[in-house]
Computed example of a mutant assay.
Amino acid sequence: MESYGLTLPTKNGPPLAGHGALAVRDAIAAQIGGLPEQLRRSLTWDQGAEMAQHLQLKLQTGLDIYFCDPHSPWQRGTNENTNGLLRQYFPKGTDLSRHSITDLDAIASTLNTRPRKTLGWRTPAEAFKDHLSLVS
């Protein structure tokens, strides 16, 4: 976020590294806007403080936002699986601001073109394309 690394952190002040509620809200709003409207219906999140701006996000995007029960990762199974795949590239606690958008896009492309058993050995990109052809 703007000002990251330019000032000393304030105790209990806003996070400036790009993972606070404002940064998450803005990033989700920017990314969700690139999806076809029929796919922008809802978002399910865990109980993390990074979603403290969920009401503003709902107003900004029109998304219905749901929260999982505490300690219930199975309510977000695909997300938990994806987190495990991402840990192959980024160990827990990695500062993603140290990576370029080109690097992050390359990793996303690698994961989106990796066949998955749960998709009948299709890739997420293939499944997404197939789904788009059904809802269009």
Rank of each mutant, 00 (worst) to 15 (best):
V24L: 02
L35Q: 12
G33I: 08
G34N: 07
I65D: 05
H71Q: 10
D64T: 14
G93F: 00
F90M: 09
R40C: 01
R41G: 10
S109E: 15
W45G: 09
E50V: 06
F128G: 05
L8P: 11
E2W: 08
G5H: 02
H71L: 07
I28K: 02
A52M: 02
Y4H: 15
P15R: 15
P73K: 10
L43R: 01
L111A: 07
G120I: 05
R122P: 04
I28S: 02
T7R: 06
I101N: 13
T123M: 04
D26G: 10
R87H: 09
A17C: 14
H54P: 04
T113A: 11
G84C: 05
T113Y: 12
L59G: 15
L132M: 07
S97C: 11
L86D: 02
A27N: 08
I65V: 06
S109C: 13
L119V: 04
Q31I: 14
T110L: 15
A127M: 09
A106Q: 12
M51P: 01
W74N: 11
D46S: 05
R76A: 03
H71Y: 13
D95V: 13
L22G: 10
P115S: 00
P124G: 05
Y89P: 03
F67T: 12
P36H: 01
C68E: 05
R40I: 01
Q53F: 00
Q56S: 11
M1P: 13
R98C: 14
I107N: 05
S72Q: 06
G20D: 01
A23P: 04
R41S: 08
A49R: 10
Q38K: 07
A108H: 07
A125C: 10
R114W: 12
G18M: 00
S133W: 06
Y89V: 08
F128A: 11
L16C: 08
G77A: 06
D130L: 12
G13S: 00
H131D: 12
A30K: 08
P15T: 14
P115G: 01
F90W: 14
A106G: 13
P70F: 06
K129Q: 13
A23K: 06
L57A: 04
R41W: 04
T94L: 05
Y89W: 05
P70K: 07
L111C: 05
D69A: 09
L6V: 14
